[in-house]
Amino acid sequence: MNPVWKRSWPIYLMIFPGLLFFIVFRYIPMGGLVLAFKDYDPFSGFSGSPWVGFDHFHRLFTQQDFWIILRNTFVLSGINLFFFFPIPIAMAILLNEVKLPWVRKLVQTTIYIPHFVSWVVVAGITVVLFATQDGGINKLLAEHGRQRMELLTDPSYFQALFLTQNIWKEMGWGTIIFLASLASVDPGLYEAAYVDGAGRWRQLWHITLPSLRTIVVIMFILRLGQIMDVGFEQIFLLQNSLNLSVSDVFDTYVYRNGVQHGEFGFTTAMGLFKSVVGLVLLLTFNRLAKKFGEEGVY
């Protein structure tokens, strides 16, 4: 037997079930993407529904608020990428520095909890805390003779509120993957550095941070692929008539205009548009990452 093949076949065998999954459950349904160019009628099926060419896309691009929606989406996505994304990394590093095991466990468990609270409930607490009249914070302000703040309706607070909710709910959850990475760092490296007289900062700089680099780059690139997804439920629940100018994003737009009326052709087209944008960004940054000697995602 060919030696390369001899070495490879067990590996191909291991890959096979997964590959089958991707082909059957991911690639076969992708045929449905033709709906993006059709006026879908469930009774005529995928092939029977009439072609409409680029009508759905035309409807999106000629939408007068298209640029506002796109801008809002990118702004919120940018906030997630540049302000939220580093937080779990920082948190993992902080926790890595904690030497008392019980403190570490306690903090870790506490920050992990909110991941299991659904957005509806988060939105509920947000109102209970931030409402202008009955909100806890404003009641406190009023009692001390301060001006009430329109935290939920003033568009200038929206992005901060969005970020705060995200940090509260997902910081701890996001930390896990980085903690797992740190857990596989050889403790011998730290010992050696300590013996060499490296202080805490130098250990952090020369051991901890480099060991996170690969995973951070991968996570960042994968996130870029999802740049158009900014958390539909969260935003939908936080949206109101007064903050619409900054809170209307791609997903809420598609929800209003397609999903609610069962227009599957239109929603498929919108999904396709999102995917293409994500793909372009992902490929660009993956190439960039490889230039800097990183492994990248493929």
């Binding site: 991707f22 459950f25 991911r26 690639y27 076969i28 349904p29 992708m30 045929g31 449905g32 993407l33 709906l35 879908y40 469930p42 995928f46 994968l222 692929g225 999802q226 599957f264 929603t267 498929t268 999904g271 396709l272 995917s275 994500g278 793909l279 992902l282």
Partner: peptide, 11 residues
Amino acid sequence: TMIFHGGMIPT
């Protein structure tokens, strides 16, 4: 497949 999805109905 992380980026492109067939959608609900084909699945």
